[in-house]
Structure formats: structure tokens, C-alpha cells
């Protein structure tokens, strides 16, 4: 198991209820059942212990250990009531599985009768039931995740239109360095979810992140980032309302930056990343108007044949 799966299993021990994982196939005896009969039941059912009922109430448990004692005494005709263990711990069916784990660990018993809210016997629980229950739940979670992934990957197959696209819109706040990058992160996760080739996802993520950071650092009032996804391509649009780039050609030079010192001390602004965006995408269009704003559009094709190979890498 990977570390995340281990964590998931730990979570499940808290989430799963005893009632979900206990064995409901109850085989019980009464206090006047003979130990000989107990021996036959244990052998035939391949179980290691039996709840003993007295007038419908749980009176005790008779186990293989108790049976061995009666065998040693050569006393197989004795009644279960004589050999059973009477101080029986029970556990409620609505309690979490972890409670049973604790009880098993503390008492060293091999089985626990499970009772409902009224104290009626409804099942029995062994450590194996916990393991089985957790494994079953893990498998179910895995299957559900697989189905969700499958559906996400085929989302465009199920929608009928002449041109279908998925549009993700993000508001980019100015100079919020704790949240900066959130939009690109979510675009990346969405593309992964949709099953896009990881190399393409990385190119989109890098271009989108550079564009997002430019808005965070350089705009006057924040801006917007929009990603349009369709079966052929991914289009990014980043726009803001100012101040505009005075000299686009200069801004495209690697290392050129207008960022003030305090932004550099935050670890940013040593370059505008525009050439990096250009290197990552198949088409880029940058327009800027002084004091009005900047608009950057970029396209990345999902199928290599449709886009020109990018040979202008940094």
C-alpha cells in the first residue's frame, strides 16, 4: 500500500460502522445445549465461538477454548451453560470499527457479540471482519474513483453540439501571493481529470501560471483568466485593466522586468515569463494598451498534427 492508501485505510477504520462489517449469519446455542453439540457446530460451521442465548438474551459465549476444557475433563455431555464465558463484552452496531479494534487489542478476545440499541444480539465480529470490511471499502472507493475518472475522460462524448467546449473562469486578485497560482492549479487538475496527455497539461499549466502571476504582480486591479477546453485545443485568455505594457518587444526579452524590489524579495518579477509562455504554446497573441490593459491569448493543440511544432523554446 502506498502512504496515501494507508491513510485512507486509517480513515476508513473511523468511518466504517460495526454494523456494516460484522457477520450477520448468527449461529447461536442455548445454555442447555450439550458441549458435544457445540463441538459439532463449531466443526461443521468452521467457527471458533458461539453466542449462548438464555431466553433470547445473551448469556455468554462458548468458544473452542471452552470446548477444549470440557474435552480435557472428558465432560462432553455437560451443558454449554457450564463451560461458557459469562463476562461477555459486547459492542454496539452503530459504533465505529476502530472501537472494536481497541477492544480486541485491550482484551485479547477473538470475537465480540454485536448488539443493537435495545441490547438485542444482531451479529458477531472478529478481527478478520475489520480487515475484510476495510479492504472491501477501499476497493469500492477505488471503483467509484475509476468510474468518475472514466466519465470525466469521456465528457465530450456524451454532449451533442456542433462545437462543445468547457470554459473555466477565474478572478485573479492583485498581489495576493498566498492565493496566486490557484487558478492555474485548478486548470491543471481539471485537465488531468479529463485525461489530457501529461506533457500537454504541463505546457498549459506553465503558460497559465506565468500569465496568472503577471496579473498578480503587474496589473492595477487584478484581472481574469479563462481556459476554454474542447476536444481539439485548449485556449487561454488572460486580461486585466491596466497599466498596459509600454513596449511589448522589450517585455519579450528574457530577464526584462519592471517589478519593484519588494516584489523581487517575494521571489518574483525577475522576468515576465512572456518568452516562456510563447515557448509553451502553439499560438500566442499579446495586445496591450497603455493605461487600459493587457490581453494575452494562447492556444495549445491537443493533437500534435494540428499545431505547429513549437521550435521557439527558450
Amino acid at each position: 500500500m502506498s502512504p496515501t492508501e494507508v491513510l485512507k485505510a486509517q480513515e476508513l477504520v473511523y468511518e466504517l460502522r460495526i454494523g456494516d462489517i460484522m457477520s450477520r449469519r448468527l449461529v447461536t446455542v442455548t445454555a442447555d445445549t450439550t458441549m458435544r453439540e457445540v463441538k459439532t457446530i463449531l466443526r461443521d460451521r468452521r467457527i471458533s465461538g458461539l453466542p449462548v442465548l438464555d431466553g433470547g438474551n445473551l448469556a455468554g459465549i462458548v468458544s473452542i477454548e471452552d470446548l477444549i476444557r470440557s474435552l480435557e475433563e472428558n465432560d462432553l455431555d455437560a451443558l454449554a451453560g457450564q463451560y461458557m464465558t459469562t463476562l461477555v463484552h459486547t459492542i454496539g452496531e452503530r459504533e465505529p470499527a476502530v472501537r472494536a479494534l481497541n477492544v480486541f487489542g485491550r482484551l485479547g478476545v477473538g470475537r465480540l457479540p454485536v448488539v443493537d440499541d435495545e441490547g438485542r444480539l444482531v451479529g458477531i465480529m472478529t478481527p478478520d471482519d475489520i480487515t475484510r470490511g476495510v479492504l472491501r471499502a477501499l476497493e469500492k472507493a477505488y471503483h467509484e474513483e475509476e468510474i468518475r475518472r472514466y466519465r470525466a475522460r469521456h465528457v465530450f462524448d456524451d454532449i451533442k453540439s456542433d462545437r462543445t467546449s468547457l470554459i473555466l473562469r477565474y478572478d485573479i486578485p492583485l498581489r495576493d501571493f498566498n492565493r496566486a497560482g490557484r487558478a492555474s492549479s485548478q486548470i491543471k487538475q481539471t485537465l488531468n481529470r479529463l485525461g489530457v496527455d501529461p506533457r500537454i497539461v504541463r505546457r498549459v499549466a506553465i503558460a497559465s501560471y506565468e500569465a496568472e502571476m503577471n496579473i498578480v504582480i503587474h496589473s492595477v486591479a487584478g484581472g481574469n483568466l479563462v481556459a476554454e477546453i474542447n476536444p481539439e485545443l485548449i485556449a487561454l485568455l488572460a486580461y486585466d485593466t491596466g497599466p498596459g505594457i509600454p513596449d511589448i518587444e522589450k517585455a519579450m526579452t528574457p530577464g526584462y522586468s519592471t517589478a519593484p524590489d519588494w516584489i523581487r524579495e517575494m521571489g518574483f518579477g525577475a522576468g515576465m515569463g512572456l518568452c516562456n509562455i510563447k515557448a509553451c504554446v502553439d499560438q500566442m497573441d499579446l495586445n496591450s494598451w497603455p493605461r487600459q490593459g493587457t490581453r494575452l491569448e494562447a492556444v495549445i493543440y491537443l493533437k500534435p498534427t494540428e499545431g505547429k511544432a513549437s521550435d521557439e523554446a527558450a
Binding site: Y209, E210, G255, G267, G273, N276
Partner: peptide
């Protein structure tokens, strides 16, 4: 690097 601006190159 401390500056992340160019890391993605």
C-alpha cells in the same frame, strides 16, 4: 533558486 520567475524555463 529563490526567484521562481525563471524556474519554469
Amino acid at each position: 533558486a529563490d526567484l521562481m520567475s525563471d524556474a519554469l524555463r
